[in-house]
């Protein structure tokens, strides 16, 4: 009798190939990145890809959204949050390596409008023709929480209580302002670091608790060595240059 391949054996070979696929992709690090760090992360990623044999792949969302995804088993290796609380919580929940946590950047907040000359300082918040002020959702986005603190410290919180629009993350908040749907908004300094148009006020650090942004290695990391290499790169001089360019203070 002529030996014929059993259909199941074809399937087995196929599954074996599938199983082998991750090995072929070895050296890939999947990074969950808080939205404010989008541009900087892409630039650091390019440098990382060039400097090592690894590749970094990024997913962007608000810190709260990313944490929910990680808690739900999302396949991320590294978590670059916009606060310290969520990486700590990932550690507490047994999702992250406690020894890997460090502050990779200190974020800065900016009050921004696409209209030139509108924003000259905090006084612009006294104007009555502003309409709605865009902030990131304070419950999920640390930049949104910082914006609420700034408003409170300037004594403007009540005035804007009913005049806020909340972006799902700082990227959407910036988009509300950039499209002009909101005349004014609190965005991340990194989002407007690359251009000079519109008008802006860099919010002094003392008006809000520092936006210390922590990174952490996730236990689900498929390729621990690539993930650790990425975290090491993030601490290095090349990353520091990018951080500075985008208006971040170095982490401690």
């Amino acid at each position: 009798m002529r030996p014929t391949a059993h259909p199941l054996s074809t399937l087995a070979v196929f599954l074996l190939l599938l199983g082998a696929a991750p090995a072929a992709l070895a050296g890939e690090v999947r990074v969950a990145v808080a939205a404010n760090f989008t541009d900087a992360a892409k630039e650091i990623g390019t440098a990382f890809d060039a400097a090592t044999d690894h590749t970094a792949v990024f997913s962007f969302a608000s810190t709260g959204q990313l944490f929910t995804q990680i808690a739900g088993g999302a396949p991320f290796d590294v978590f670059l949050a916009a606060d310290r609380a969520r990486p700590q919580r990932a550690i507490d929940d047994g999702l992250a390596d406690p020894d890997s946590r460090f502050t990779y950047a200190q974020g800065r907040l900016a009050l921004y409008s696409r209209e030139p000359g509108l924003v000259t300082g905090p006084d612009v918040l006294d104007r009555t023709d502003l309409g709605r002020l865009a902030i990131a959702n304070p419950e999920t986005a640390p930049y949104g929480a910082a914006a609420v603190q700034v408003l409170a410290n300037l004594g403007k919180r009540e005035r804007f209580d009913d005049h806020l629009v909340r972006g799902a993350n700082i990227a959407q908040t910036f988009q509300f302002v950039a499209t002009g749907n909101a005349r004014l908004g609190f965005v991340a300094a990194s989002q407007i670091a690359g251009h000079e148009d519109g008008s802006r006020w860099m919010v002094p650090d003392q008006l809000h608790t520092p936006i210390a942004q922590d990174a952490v290695l996730l236990k689900a990391a498929a390729d621990q060595s690539a993930a650790r290499a990425f975290l090491a790169f993030l601490k290095g001089p090349q990353a520091a240059e990018v951080l500075d360019k985008y208006g971040y203070a170095p982490g401690g």
């Binding site: 608000s62 709260g64 709605r132 959702n137 806020l164 909340r166």
Partner: peptide, 21 residues
């Protein structure tokens, strides 16, 4: 823009609740 009582509809509220655990 997630404004309570004006544009924060059911599906957005659910999304927020899930995201904030």
């Amino acid at each position: 823009g997630n404004i309570p009582g004006e544009t924060r509809v059911l599906s957005i509220a659910i999304y927020d609740y899930v995201e904030t655990l």
